[in-house]
C-alpha cells in the first residue's frame, strides 16, 4: 500500500446554512481496496459521497486524484476523473429501460443516432459478468425487483471504466440472498483492481468485504480501522462516540499517520 492513493481527501468542510455537515474530513482510498465509510445517521456519510461525486461540492478542502489536486464541482467532473457511484435510491430513471438507464449520459452513437444494437450487446456482456439475469432489457426499470435494480446500478458504474466506485448502502433494500450477491460483486470489483468505497449501516457487510473502515461521527473523522484486525465492538463504539478521538487515534495503524 505504498503507492499514491487513487483518491485522497484532506480537510474537507461542507455546510448547509448554519449546519456543519463535514468538518475537516480526511480520507484515502487505494486501488484494489475496499474502504467502508461508516457512521450513524447524520454523521455526514451522504454529504461526503456527494462531495466526491460532485453532486454537492465541498466548501473547503483539497481533493487529490492519483496524487494531483483536482476540483470536482459537478457530476461530470467526477465522471471524467473516473469516479462512479451507485446510489441506494434515486439512481435510475423509472421510465427508461435497462439499456437506457445503463447508458444514460454516455450513449453510444453511430452517425449521430443512438446505436441501440451496440448498447444492447454491451449491456448483455456486462449483465453476464455479474450473472445478473434480466430476460427483457426493454422493460422500464420500474418493473424490476430491487435486487435487479441494484445490480443495474452497479453495472452502470462499470460502464465508464472507472477507477473508483462508490456504493451507497448497496444492500439496504435487499434480501439476504441478494445481499450476498452484491457483496460478491464488490469482491469482483476489488479483484479487478478498482478502488471501492462502501457506505453501509450493516457492519456485517463491512466485516465481510471491507479492508479498512473509516468512521464519521458528527461530521468529523472518528477513527480509521483495519477491518481484519479490529473487532466489531471497537468500530461500533467509535460510531456511537463511546470512544473518543484520542483513543482511536492511538489505535490507528501507522500508514494513516
Amino acid at each position: 500500500m505504498s503507492t499514491t492513493p487513487v483518491l485522497a481527501l484532506r480537510g474537507i468542510c461542507k455546510h448547509f446554512g448554519a449546519v456543519q455537515a463535514l468538518i475537516d474530513v480526511d480520507l484515502e482510498i487505494h486501488a484494489g481496496e475496499v474502504v467502508a465509510l461508516v457512521g450513524d445517521n447524520g454523521a455526514g456519510k451522504s454529504s461526503l459521497v456527494k462531495v466526491i461525486t460532485g453532486v454537492g461540492p465541498a466548501d473547503e478542502g483539497v481533493i487529490e486524484w492519483q496524487g494531483r489536486t483536482v476540483r470536482i464541482l459537478q457530476p461530470r467532473d467526477a465522471r471524467e476523473l473516473g469516479i462512479a457511484a451507485a446510489y441506494q435510491d434515486l439512481a435510475l430513471c423509472e421510465n427508461l429501460d435497462v439499456i437506457g438507464n445503463l447508458f444514460l449520459g454516455r450513449e453510444v452513437r453511430r452517425l449521430g443516432v443512438l446505436n441501440e444494437v451496440a448498447m444492447e450487446q454491451r449491456t448483455r456482456e456486462l449483465l453476464n459478468t455479474f450473472s445478473l439475469h434480466i430476460p427483457d432489457l426493454r422493460v422500464p426499470v420500474a418493473s424490476l425487483s430491487s435486487g435487479q435494480r441494484q445490480g443495474i446500478a452497479i453495472c452502470r458504474c462499470l460502464l465508464g471504466e472507472p477507477e473508483l466506485i462508490l456504493l451507497d448502502e448497496p444492500t439496504a433494500s435487499l434480501g439476504v440472498q441478494q445481499s450476498v450477491q452484491v457483496l460478491d460483486y464488490i469482491e469482483q470489483l476489488r479483484e479487478r483492481g478498482l478502488g471501492v468505497m462502501l457506505i453501509s449501516h450493516n457492519l456485517g457487510d463491512v466485516k465481510a468485504v471491507a479492508d479498512r473502515a473509516v468512521v464519521l461521527r458528527l461530521g468529523r473523522n472518528n477513527g480509521f480501522f483495519d477491518v481484519t484486525t479490529t473487532s466489531q465492538e471497537q468500530i461500533v463504539s467509535s460510531i456511537t462516540g463511546a470512544t473518543d478521538n484520542a483513543v482511536t487515534r492511538r489505535a490507528t495503524p501507522e500508514w494513516e499517520l
Binding site: P75, R79, L90, N95, L96, V113
Partner: peptide
C-alpha cells in the same frame, strides 16, 4: 427516440435527480 438529446428528455421526464447525477 433515436438521439441522445431525446433520450435525455425522456430521462428528465421520468426522474430529474438520477438524470442530473448521470451528468445531464
Amino acid at each position: 427516440r433515436r438521439t441522445t438529446y431525446g433520450r435525455r428528455i425522456f430521462a428528465l421526464g421520468g426522474s430529474v435527480e438520477p438524470a442530473r447525477r448521470a451528468g445531464i
